[in-house]
C-alpha cells in the first residue's frame, strides 16, 4: 500500500510541479489573477457598496450566494453530527457525590431513582476535584469573550472580521464553559433545542433577507432593493444588508460549533464531556 501511495504521490506532485513553469511569478502585479477581476473589486467596491473591508464586500455582496451555501455547509455539518451520533437511550451507571461529606453514591443503570436536594451533584465517570482558579477565571472571562465576538461580527465591514470569525469566537466561549465546568452546566445554559433552533434561524435569516430582496422586485440577494422597506439612504443600504447577513451567519456558526463539540465530546449521550 505504501508503494502505491508513493507512486501516486510522486505522479501527482510531478504533474503539479511541472505546471508551475507557466505560472506568473509570485507577487507579480500584472498577472491575470491580479488584474482581471480584482481591479474592479478594489477600485469600485467602495463606491458601489460603501464597505472598506474589501474581503467582506466581495464575500457578502458580490459573491454572497456562495456565502449562503457556505453557511448551509456549516448547518449540514451540525445536522450530520446530530443524525449520526445522537443517541439518548444508552444506559450507564450514574454517580452522585454528596458535597458536604464527599461520599459517592452509585446508581445502577436500570434504576430510575435520583437523589433530590441540592447537596448531591451529578458526577462524571472520570471526575477530578474542580479547580477553583480555573472555574473563577473562566466565569469572569466568558462575558468579555462574548462581547469581543459581537464586536468582531459588527465590525466586519471596517476591520478584519465578519460573521464566521465572530461566530466561532462566540461558540468557543460556550465550549470554554463546557471545558472549565462540565458539559451539563453548559447544556443547561444553552439546551439542545435552543442550539438546534438557533442554527436553523441563522441560515433562515440569510435566505430571508435574500427572499425579501426578491419579493421587492430585484434579484435574489440584491440589497439595493431594501431601500423600499428600510429608511436608509441608498448609498449605505448595501452595507446594512451585508450586516444583516453576517449576523445570520454568526448565529448559525455559533450554534453549530457548540452542537459539534457537545456531540463529539459526549459521543452523543449529552451526559458527560471531556
Amino acid at each position: 500500500m505504501k508503494k502505491t501511495a508513493l507512486l501516486i504521490v510522486c505522479l501527482c506532485g510531478g504533474l503539479l510541479l511541472s505546471a508551475t513553469a507557466d505560472f506568473p511569478d509570485w507577487g507579480y502585479p500584472s498577472s491575470p489573477a491580479s488584474t482581471h477581476l480584482s481591479n474592479h473589486y478594489i477600485e469600485k467596491s467602495m463606491e458601489e457598496t460603501n464597505v472598506p473591508n474589501l474581503v467582506t464586500a466581495v464575500l457578502a455582496d458580490y459573491r454572497g450566494f456562495d456565502t449562503m451555501f457556505e453557511t448551509a455547509v456549516v448547518f449540514c455539518a451540525g445536522l450530520a453530527c446530530l443524525l449520526l451520533l445522537r443517541n439518548s437511550n444508552h444506559k450507564k451507571d450514574r454517580f452522585y457525590r454528596h458535597v458536604p461529606t464527599g461520599v459517592i453514591l452509585r446508581f445502577n443503570k436500570n434504576s430510575t431513582r435520583e437523589p433530590g436536594g441540592r447537596e448531591f451533584e451529578n458526577m462524571d465517570a472520570h471526575w477530578v476535584p474542580d479547580d477553583l482558579i480555573i472555574m473563577t477565571v473562566c466565569r469572569i472571562l466568558i462575558p468579555f469573550i462574548q462581547i469581543y465576538a459581537l464586536y468582531v461580527v459588527a465590525h466586519g465591514d471596517f476591520s478584519p472580521g465578519g460573521g464566521f470569525q465572530g461566530g466561532v469566537i462566540f461558540g468557543s466561549s460556550l465550549i470554554l464553559l463546557a471545558i472549565s465546568y462540565n458539559l451539563r452546566t453548559a447544556l443547561k445554559r444553552t439546551t439542545e433545542k435552543v442550539l438546534g433552533i438557533f442554527s436553523a434561524v441563522g441560515v433562515l435569516l440569510y435566505v430571508g433577507i435574500g427572499l425579501l430582496c426578491m419579493v421587492l422586485g430585484g434579484n435574489f440577494l440584491d440589497y439595493g432593493k431594501l431601500v423600499k422597506v428600510l429608511p436608509v439612504d441608498p448609498g449605505h443600504i448595501r452595507a446594512l444588508g451585508m450586516l444583516g447577513v453576517e449576523i445570520g451567519v454568526g448565529i448559525t456558526v455559533m450554534a453549530v460549533m457548540v452542537v459539534i463539540y457537545v456531540n463529539l465530546a459526549s459521543k452523543g449521550q449529552h451526559d458527560e464531556g471531556l
Partner: peptide, 14 residues
C-alpha cells in the same frame, strides 16, 4: 487581491 481570501474562507469552512 481580495478574491482568493474570499474563496478560501469558504474552503476553510468546508
Amino acid at each position: 487581491n481580495p478574491l482568493p481570501h474570499v474563496l478560501m474562507l469558504t474552503a476553510i469552512v468546508v
